[in-house]
Every structure is written in C-alpha cells, then in structure tokens.
Amino acid sequence: MTQDAIIQVRGLINQFGQQRIHDDLDLDVERGEVLGVVGGSGTGKSVLLRTIVGLNRPRAGSIRVFGEEMSGLTGEDLKRFLRRWGVLFQDGALFSSLTVAQNIQIAMNEHTTVPPQLRDEITRLKIDMVGLPLEAGSKYPSELSGGMRKRAGLARALAVDPEIVFLDEPTAGLDPIGAAAFDQLILDLKQSLGLTVFMVTHDLDSLITVTDRIAVLVDKKAKVGTVESLMRDNDPWIREYFHGPRGRAAVAASHKAH
C-alpha cells in the first residue's frame, strides 16, 4: 500500500439492520488513477461511494481523503474538503428548478469568488468540455435527454476543477456510442485535468477502456487489481464476471483495438 493514496479506506463496516454490507473493507485510491468499482447487485458499490463522500455514516472504520480523517470534519473544514471533489449521481441529480448553467454556477458561487463575466465564460467552457451544445446552458433539466443530463451533471461535478470525481454508473442508460464518447470524455479530462476518478460501473467496456485498476466487491471486501490480474483470480464471481460471454467479448474487443 503506497503513501500516495488520495483516498484511504481502512476497516470499513457498513450495516443496515441485520444486513452487513461491508465488513472490514480496505481500499486505496492513488492520485491520478481511474479506479473502477464493480460487484454484483447489492454488494454495496453505491454505498461505498456514498460513505466516502460523507452521505452515509459508516458503523466503523476510517476514511482518509487527501491524508485527512473524514469523520469528525464539520463546518468550514468540511466545506474546504467538499470543494476538492465532485460527484456525478446516477441520473445527474441536477437541480430541477435551475437551468444547466445555473446548476454549474452553484458550486462556483459557493466556493469561489469569480467575477460574473468570467464565471459565465467558464460555465460555457465547462458545458463545451463535456460535449454539450452551448444552448443547453439555458435549458432546464427536464428538457434534456438522459445522456445530456449526465453530461450536465458531469459539468456540475467539474465546476470548480476538483481533484477527485466520483462517478456513479456514468454510462448506464446511454447508447453504446454515447457510452463510448463518455468513456473518452473521462479519459480526456483525466489527462488534461489530472483528475483522480472513482467510478462505480457495470459497463465492462467502459471498465476495460477507462480504468487503471479495478476494485471488485466480493465477500463484503474489496479485491483490487488490473484487468489482467483479476482475470487470473479464482473467486467464482470474478471468474464469472470476466470470463462470462460479455466479459470475453469486451476483453477481446479491447485487444483488437490495441
């Protein structure tokens, strides 16, 4: 385990009622990498994400982000933290009473003091960055398609140039072309902005194209590795996942592409 972990989860326990979701889970995310998180339904992928960003209080365990313990952070300290990451929720979770541009500006207004004209220009830049047409900025979320809402959600997550972005199933519900474009977008942004990406996904193609390492949630713990190392793993679920028909196809496609 390296010193350079930007997110460090140790001994995490999450439990709802009688059902234990995570049991003594350890996970490191290194600076500048794209970490994919996979697992069967109900293995707590989204719960893990929510726990790291502080939306869910774990029963036990420590979560250190940027080298600081998360629990016990309040007020201004917490706010300073929140500024350094962005979250893209499954369906974008845009504020439905605001336009896309206002959605993006809300974080900018909260955390920075950018002069209005420059703020509008940066907003337009973000809208362009995620591949939306400029006129999308004045539209309301209900007027956008699902894919556009996701892009707008990503633009909001990137509004104040965070160091980490958390993506909850970014390609779910997109058509294959849209999903591939989204993958490329994430790679691009990672390259140019030096982002660390924590990505929960079901999408094998996107997992193989985008991620540097993969964390598989099995037996209430996280097993981390690269595609190659995980393909040699003996755990039945992991074998099924990577050696099943879809897994094979995705791996074969990625080999062909290289």
Binding site: R124, L125, D128, M129, P133, L134, E135, G137, S138, D188, Q191, S192, L193, G194
Partner: peptide, 23 residues
C-alpha cells in the same frame, strides 16, 4: 506540455462559441 491540452480545449471551445449564439 502537460498544460497544453487544457489551453487547446479552451481555444477549441472558443471557436465553437463563435458559431453559436445565446438567445
């Protein structure tokens, strides 16, 4: 060179802006 992609992005974005107008 690490910063170049960002500048490029901004330049490209600005080029696209000129074609499109806000209402």
């Amino acid at each position: 060179p690490d910063f170049e992609t960002l500048i490029e992005r901004a330049t490209q974005a600005a080029e696209r802006f000129t074609g499109q107008t806000t209402a």
